[in-house]
Every structure is written in structure tokens, then in C-alpha cells.
Amino acid sequence: MTTFVTHSGLLTLRSLRSLLRMPAYLLFTLVQPMVWLLLFGQLFQRVAELPGFGGGSYLEYLTPGVIVMTAMMSAGWNGTSFIQDMERGVMDRNLTSPVSRGALISGSLAYQAVTTVVQSLIVFAVGLAAGARYAGGPAGVLVVLLCSVLLALIFAALSDALALLFRQQEALIGVSQFLTLPLAFLSSVMMAPAVMPGWVGDVARFNPVDWAAVASRQALSADPDWAAVFGRAGLLTAVAVLFGWLASRAFRAYQRSA
């Protein structure tokens, strides 16, 4: 067990070291959220005048959603480093070493969790700088970070699993085009549940992005409904564990075809 933790830590640090040497990559992943937050937020600012938005500005409504959406979308590319490792001999070297398959997954997920926290704080800071204000305080911010990390873990694990199964970057492009983008629109990230079409609301109830967005907005509000927050955080945790397990199972398929 201690070996497992050591190995996961070593692999996480390796990835973080790479990121620190190429910080442009992190900035690159922040272009889209800035577009959503600053352009989309401006263009649709009068949407918040509709009933169901709770009376605040649209930017205030949108910021927590963009944070969790960003976490999901960049986590969808997490498998890229596995694909690069497979294209080089790094994956095979790791698999012939004492590093367990589980540690390869958890190292990759822990790295994604750390980058998600940094990303989320940056997006949050931009939201505040643009004028968003929240009554939720530090507890609210912690819940936003927790929810975006859990959501990131789900999609990072899925991305790892697909990388192991298909071994090509195209599979991950599929995740972003066919999964994360539609999921963002089938949620309350941009539109309040009260004014979205009924069927979208129904789908959103089963959508992890929606769970994260709802819990984050609740936690940042003046009087959070903590039952709703913890219920959704619990669901996110359960799905994250399930996907993490599936990803480590995907190594078996990878080795069967090795």
C-alpha cells in the first residue's frame, strides 16, 4: 500500500514537473473558459432577467458552471499523456517495472486533480475580477473546488480508459466532441433549470456536470441547501470511484492485445 502511494506520488510529480516546464499548455486550456465567461457572459447578460435566475447577474450565475465545465473538458484530454507514453516506450517500461497498474491510473488522476484546482482558481479569479460576487465565503469556494475535482476525476478516468482501449488520440477527440460538449449544454451550466425545456431538465438530473454546477452554485449562495450540495457531491464521488476502477480494468484489455 505504501508502495502504491509512493508510486502514485512519483508519477504525479513527474507530470507536474513537465507541466511546470511547459506552462503555456495550462494557459491554452484556459482560452475556452475565458471565451465562455467573458464573451458568452456579456452577450447573454440579459438572460439573467428571466425568472428563475435568482436575481443576480448572469456572470454570477455562469462562473461556477464555467469552472466545472472547464474541469470536465480539460480532464477529457487526460489520456493524451498515456497515448504519448505508449507511442514512446514509456508505458512499456512502466509496465515492466514494479509500478502497479492502479498506481499508473491514480498518478494520472492525482495530476489532473492538482491542475484542476489551479485552473478552477484562475477561472474563479477572473469571474471575481469581472464583477461576480458571492455570499458563500470560503466554504462555498471549497465546495466548488471539490466538485470540479470530482468531475475532473470522472472524465480523466474515462479518458485514460479510452486511451488504453483505443491507443489513439482520435478516441479522445471523440470524448470532447460527442460527450463533454453536449453534456455541458444538457445541464444548468448556462441556463437556469426553471427556464430550460422540460426534457433537457430531465436529462440534466442524470448529468454529472449538472450535479457539479448545481452543488457549486448552491454552496456559493447566501443560504445554501446543504442537503442538495452533499447529495450531488456524493453522486460525483460514487461515479468517480466507479470510473477510476474501470480505468484500471482497461489495463487488462491493453495487455491482452500487447
Binding site: 507511442e87 514512446r88 514509456v90
Partner: peptide
């Protein structure tokens, strides 16, 4: 017990 050097380069180029 083994060391393995694969056909493909297996070091981290940004380290």
C-alpha cells in the same frame, strides 16, 4: 529482476 529497454525511446524528453 529484469531491466527492459524497449525499441522505442522510453525516457521523458522534458526531464
Amino acid at each position: 529482476a529484469i531491466g527492459y529497454v524497449s525499441q522505442k525511446p522510453s525516457f521523458d524528453p522534458v526531464a
